[in-house]
Amino acid sequence: MVLNRVTVGRIAALARIDIAEEEADALAAELGAILGWVETLNEVDTDDIAPMTSVGGHSLPWRADEVDDGGYPDRILSNAPDAAGAFFAVPKVVE
């Protein structure tokens, strides 16, 4: 697996992680090496094998439709980097 810097740029954009121009090639090589290594999985015949998406046999548990949470905006906002009244605040988003 060889990754190029364009692909790394696309992935970094999806992950919202800034990548410096000068590190793109090195990162591409590094990630490419890891991906090349995990591709050893292609040696395994997995025809007719269902993907294992969860561990354990029990079924999805559910909660009753009861209001037993919320009502504490102070706790919700206690770590906010920026707030305006009871709102979280971020730089203006333009749609």
């Binding site: 991906l35 995990v38 999985l41 395994v44 997995t46 094998i49 993907p51 294992m52 998406t53």
Partner: peptide, 14 residues
């Protein structure tokens, strides 16, 4: 190619 494949292998390991 990656994620689904890995989950299939995961089942084989289990």
């Amino acid at each position: 190619a990656y994620y689904t494949k890995a989950q299939r292998v995961r089942r084989l390991i289990a």
